[in-house]
């Protein structure tokens, strides 16, 4: 952990606020009345056993649930005070400001350059080729990939190693300059060295973005996050500074989970 001892949530502004968010898939409720405040410029980890609703909640934040047939989202979800489930909010606009990184690296089967440039291109963020080059280079720098790929930007993104692919995907997400980055178990398909590299990167990105990460690894949550939320059976059981959750859990279910009694 870093030297920050007190709860950063007290100092940092609230970025994402959820009130009584419920999600059901074809009538089957997957998430029950989740209310949570997530601060900006920090890493918030969602932990919990499989099927607890943490990924479902994550997908609410960029409305990826819209693409799932039969999914219904209720309650209130705001980013910077703006209701995102509002009819007036276009999911395309929302997703441009809420980037997402998936469990398995999923670069487009295009060149490294085109992978990163795709978002800026469709959103029209660059007016000229040099401008686009700059955005791409910046994003790759931020994702810590520039040194490794600067000489082979035209190579296919799929030719990279798994860890590099995941960093490429992160570069692709930050190329459109989002405010929030969602990560759905970003390291579960990677080896420990690549995982360490990604965690390092997450720690660096924290300075500029609100990062929300779903993870199965409690060590990872402890290493990278400032806040941790524990989900169980569709409920948000406990939420607080990571330190407190791991050293002094209030709920017995949290305690059982982090001590390895189930999950």
């Amino acid at each position: 952990m870093t030297d920050a001892i007190h709860n950063p949530a007290d100092e940092l502004p609230i970025k994402v606020a959820a009130r009584d968010v419920t999600v059901s898939y074809s009538g089957k409720q997957a998430l029950h009345n989740v209310s949570i405040d997530i601060p900006d410029r920090s890493v918030t980890a969602f932990i919990g056993p499989s099927g607890c609703g943490k990924s479902t909640f994550l997908r609410c934040l960029n409305r990826m649930n819209d693409t799932i047939e039969g999914a219904k989202v209720g309650g209130s979800l705001t980013i910077d005070g703006q209701e995102i489930n509002d009819k007036s909010i276009d999911p395309v606009v929302l997703r441009a400001s809420v980037g997402m990184v998936f469990q398995k690296p999923n670069p487009f089967p295009k060149s490294i350059y085109d992978n990163v440039a795709y978002g800026p291109r469709i959103h029209g963020l660059a007016l000229s080729r040099p401008e686009l080059d700059e955005i791409v280079e910046n994003a790759l720098h931020k994702a810590g990939l520039w040194a490794e790929v600067s000489d082979r930007l035209a190579h296919p993104g799929t030719s990279l190693s798994g860890g590099q692919q995941q960093r490429l995907v992160i570069a692709r997400a930050i190329a459109v300059n989002p405010e929030v980055i969602l990560m759905d178990e970003p390291c579960s398909a990677l080896d420990p060295i690549a995982t360490a590299r990604i965690e390092e990167l997450i720690d660096e990105l924290r300075e500029n973005y609100c990062i929300i990460i779903v993870t199965h690894s409690m060590q990872q949550a402890a290493r990278v996050s400032q806040q941790t939320a524990f989900f169980h059976m569709g409920n948000l059981v406990e939420y607080g500074p990571t330190e407190d959750i791991f050293t002094n859990p209030r709920d017995t279910r949290t305690q059982d989970y982090i001590t390895g009694r189930f999950g």
Binding site: M64, R95, F102, N106, G119, H123
Partner: peptide
């Protein structure tokens, strides 16, 4: 075509 490609594009903000 893998679903992950669709998700990747949607997540970047493609319509």
């Amino acid at each position: 075509v893998p679903q992950s490609i669709r998700q990747a594009a949607l997540a970047v903000g493609a319509s």
